[in-house]
């Protein structure tokens, strides 16, 4: 692949100081993300999974240039965003947009749908006139499957699923190249979640969007992504094309996540890996491999050096020194059950 990726992060780190101990003394820091280098290729959907607190949202915000990173950089279409001033960033803002998790806090309760949708156009160079904004807003509403009569309504009149559609319409107003979606379906009921996931798939295809899709739900990430990255304690531990990752995980944490994910397919006499203990604190992560304190395959060497994300297959990288392991795939059980179980 010689094409420049839409997004490239290089050794991206975000450390938050937390006030602790005496003032004046250097306090502790939360290493929310720590040395993340990944590419998001054009027109592809990269799914980012990981448990709560693993740093997914922090990574997403850093990619959107919302918070300046502690170190490392984010390149958007070959340009290093961290070098740009607020003003110089503006033209890039139009090309990258985001959709939020909470359909209730992501829309300003005091603004009508037309005002909310019009906003991204208002701040574009030149700015768009009122009627131009309104026309575009109506067009985008229809694109996300809502009637144009909703333009003059206010957020409290809508259900969670409808609000989420409005949030998606807002992100699409400027015809962005890149869309970051942080847990966009977590707050929705399953039947509504399916509607929104289908909408994303359609829009991605029609508008040739590049996407970073953040979620903690493995089934969802498997459904929407071309590439999946697994995050643990602020680091990417494995990244691979979706099929390869689900059918042949190479990192013990990925295996544990896949085996812990509940599945409604009946008859799965699946071996379940129950991890011991909790995720360690990102304030003082374990030495060496961050996962070693819970890893069923850890050996003494795991505590020494931090394993690098190394190639283990085509486009498949994993950060585990135990490349000798034969790990269990997500589909580690009868396939006919899967087919039979999906209702017609």
């Amino acid at each position: 692949m010689s094409e420049t990726p839409m997004i490239r992060t290089v050794d991206l780190a975000q450390h938050f100081p937390i006030r602790k101990g005496l003032p004046g003394r250097p306090g502790a820091v939360v290493r929310a993300i720590d040395g993340v280098s990944i590419d998001i290729p054009r027109r592809q959907v990269v799914g980012l999974v990981g448990e709560s607190g693993s740093g997914k949202s922090t990574f997403g915000r850093a990619v959107m240039a919302l918070d300046p990173p502690t170190s490392g950089r984010v390149e958007f279409d070959g340009t290093d965003l961290s070098q740009l001033s607020r003003a110089a960033l503006a033209p890039y803002r139009r090309r990258m947009q985001m959709v939020f998790q909470d359909p209730f806090s992501s829309l300003n309760p005091r603004m009508s749908v037309a005002e909310t949708l019009g906003m991204p156009l208002r701040f574009r160079e030149g700015g768009a006139g009122r009627s131009e904004r309104r026309d575009r807003a109506a067009e985008m509403l229809e694109m996300v499957g809502l009637p144009r009569s909703y333009l003059d309504r206010f957020p409290h009149e809508f259900s969670g699923g409808q609000r989420q559609r409005i949030g998606i319409a807002r992100a699409l107003m400027t015809s962005p190249d890149f869309l970051m979606a942080d847990e966009v379906v977590s707050a929705l009921d399953v039947s509504v979640q399916a509607q929104v996931l289908n909408l994303f798939a359609r829009l991605q295809r029609e508008m040739e969007l590049t996407m970073l899709f953040i979620t903690h739900d493995l089934a969802v990430v498997g459904h929407v992504s071309d590439i999946v990255a697994v995050m643990y304690l602020g680091r990417i531990v494995e990244i691979a094309p979706t099929r390869a990752l689900f059918s042949g995980p190479r990192h013990p944490y990925t295996e544990a996540l896949l085996s812990a994910a509940p599945s409604p397919v009946p008859g799965g006499a699946r071996k379940r890996i129950i991890l011991e203990g909790d995720v360690p604190s990102p304030v003082n992560p374990p030495s060496g491999c961050p996962f070693r304190t819970r890893c069923p395959y850890a050996i003494a060497a795991c505590a020494e050096d931090r394993p690098a994300l190394a190639a283990v297959g085509p486009d498949h990288r994993s950060a585990c020194i135990r490349t000798d392991l034969d790990l269990m795939p997500a589909t580690g059980r009868r396939t006919e059950a899967a087919l039979e179980g999906s209702p017609g």
Partner: peptide, 16 residues
């Protein structure tokens, strides 16, 4: 309907 609307781990990565 509810069961058909949840994505399955088993079919992950088989195209959207």
């Amino acid at each position: 309907g509810l069961m058909a609307s949840v994505p399955l781990l088993e079919t992950a990565g088989t195209g959207r």
